[in-house]
Design a protein around this nucleic acid. Structure first.
Lengths: 194, 194
DNA sequence: AAGTTTATTGACTCGTCAATCAACAAAAAA
DNA sequence: TTTTTTGTTGATTGACGAGTCAATAAACTT
């Protein structure tokens, strides 16, 4: 049976299964066996490709981060004015691709993972840095020296909305979630010339 | 040696130790033995008083919630105007009593616990409900029908700031954290008559 | 055709940990 | 003073799970 060139396929399946399982169980207490089973292989194979459970988690995190990054980048290229770009960033954060139950659950658990794993912490900081610099570069032309504070606040709102969504049930409403952040943005920018 | 009337003392010590250990380890993967050891007793005694690990966690959560509630209530009684009350709520959220490393770490992990434990979820929802109703009753006289949206946003900022603090190192700066939320509040209330 | 690399798994090891239990001690009640 | 209640722990059980390994097989290389 063994076909050659399985590695990327297996890895991708494991990464996907990891996110689903973490979201389903609601914690990092998922066994490698559970993940492997959902990905349609034995746990030994999962270990074979990733070496350890932590590596599997980190790969899942990288995957989510890269999806997120792509979404934001894609939204930014079609936005011309600073205000458009801010709007685009917020909408991308709550796009159907990112703002999904399993992904939200995974995010929450990655914050926890970052408390113990330096690598996970590094990855989360990269996400924060990107978000921050995207916001800043769009905010500065509008708000000048207030941009720093606004970016901090906006980032906190976005993360907070994610966190809170983890406590809700049913399908996440990205539109409503984005509204909270957009609302904040509009209020803050009211005083600045358009 | 056995003195009588130990139960409340032992329980309190365990609750305290639980929060410290969760904060120290950075996850719920703390053993009952670790907790019991820090509290100065055997793990068997911890089980004797709480029955299960989950009960220990829930007791710790209730403790944090009650400290939090007391702090907010205390701050509210000395605030007269709606604006004062809003300010008081925010400051209480980031008071030195609540905004501490271990407590922040514990909060984060309680969000995770709420994903799997219905009781923990219930407790977190009580916290959210309280915060929300406190904010609403202070916001309505000022903002009227916008109060709902503002409370939602303000709640998200507060939770978001907590979440983000979990990724930082060093002593938490409650003053700076509160500033982010106050900043949001001021921007939102700009349009309303003072 | 023989040898090497890649894919794959079942069975196993080894450690950890929640929870239980038997046993002992001191205080309080009878 | 016997009995019961409360406090306490060391030792043990039982389960579970990460990671390893030997074995098997298909596919590529030479």
């Amino acid at each position: 049976m063994p076909k050659v060139g399985m590695e990327p396929i297996r890895k991708a399946a494991l990464v996907k299964a990891t996110i689903v399982e973490i979201g389903r169980v609601g914690s990092l207490d998922v066994t490698v066996s559970q993940i492997a089973k959902r990905a349609g292989m034995s746990s030994a194979l999962a270990h074979h490709y990733f070496g350890s459970k932590e590596e599997i988690f980190l790969a899942a995190m990288r995957h989510i981060l890269s999806l997120y990054g792509a979404e934001v980048r894609g939204a930014l290229v079609v936005a011309s004015t600073p205000r458009d770009r801010l709007r685009a960033i917020i909408l991308a954060n709550f796009s159907p691709g990112n703002f999904r139950r399993e992904v939200i659950g995974a995010w929450l658990n990655f914050w926890v993972l970052a408390q113990t794993s330096p690598q996970a912490r590094r990855l989360l900081k990269i996400y924060q840095g990107r978000l921050r610099s995207n916001l800043l570069s769009a905010l500065r032309p509008i708000a000048g020296s207030s941009a720093l504070d606004l970016a901090e606040g906006l980032g906190a709102v976005i993360d907070g909305v994610y966190l809170r969504e983890a406590l809700k049930s049913g399908a996440p409403d990205g539109k409503a979630a984005a509204e909270v952040a957009l609302n904040y943005l509009n209020a803050q920018l009211k005083g600045f010339p358009s």
